[in-house]
Amino acid sequence: MFSQFLSAAYLPFAISFAVMIGIGLIEAIGLGLGHLDLDGDIGADGHSGLLDWLGLGGELPILIWLTSLLGCFTLAGVAIQQITEALHGTPIAWPLAASGALVLGGLFNTLAANGLAQIMPGFETTVISTDDLLRQRATILEGTARRGAPARAKVVDRHGQAHFILVEPHDDAGTIASGETVLIVRRDGARFFALPDTNTLLQSV
């Protein structure tokens, strides 16, 4: 069976199985690549419904979903080749088998992913959106922040993880010195704008 699995007719499924094992090893040694942020702006144009259908709309880590897809693809492909060989004495060409396995595997994975999401209700991700750093306080680490000349700052998110960002004063003529604490109020791309805690508007915040 093992030598048959390595034959040309089973090649896509052997590769899929190997990738699946590789992803499992990555997760096992704790690299944590499964916790990817898929939020983005997908809800605006209706793609969120597709992600929900695929099993990606909930809290299921992306690499667990991908591992499930590879497993379903492998099982569907092997089943197609085994059934074809039993009926006709020889497996079909791997492109045809892979096409069929992709369709069947995708359908099976939808059920599997949604099932996994249901039995993992306690999963919590420490991945946050960039916008989640807004309204958080940061500390200027070095240099003096001026408009057009940002300074490097450190902000700790709600999970206790540190992020290092570039900060400019919210006010055009403002400056923020090294060591000052600021409130992040807006961002433009990768650049954040903040008000220093010494600002009188923040005295009651």
Rank of each mutant, 00 (worst) to 15 (best):
Q82D: 11
Q82P: 01
Q82N: 09
Q82R: 09
T84R: 11
L87D: 08
H88K: 13
G89V: 04
T90G: 12
I92C: 11
I92A: 11
I92N: 13
A93K: 14
W94N: 10
P95S: 12
L96F: 12
A97V: 09
A98W: 14
G100D: 01
G100W: 00
A101H: 03
L104V: 15
G105I: 11
G105Q: 10
G105S: 15
G105Y: 09
G105K: 07
G106L: 13
G106Q: 02
G106I: 06
L107K: 03
L107F: 14
N109Q: 12
N109V: 03
N109L: 00
L111I: 12
L111G: 15
A112P: 03
A113G: 00
A113H: 00
N114H: 15
G115R: 06
G115A: 05
L116P: 08
A117T: 09
I119Y: 11
M120G: 00
P121Q: 04
P121W: 03
E124M: 01
T126Y: 03
T126M: 01
V127R: 15
T130P: 06
R135T: 07
R135D: 08
Q136W: 00
Q136V: 02
R137P: 03
R137N: 05
A138Q: 05
A138E: 02
I140N: 12
I140Q: 07
E142Y: 00
G143Y: 05
A145I: 03
G148A: 02
G148V: 00
P150D: 09
A151Q: 13
R152Q: 06
A153L: 03
A153F: 01
K154C: 04
K154F: 01
D157H: 08
H159G: 03
H163R: 00
H163V: 02
I165W: 14
I165Q: 13
I165V: 15
V167P: 07
E168H: 13
E168G: 07
D171T: 12
D171K: 13
A173N: 08
G174V: 10
G174F: 05
G174R: 04
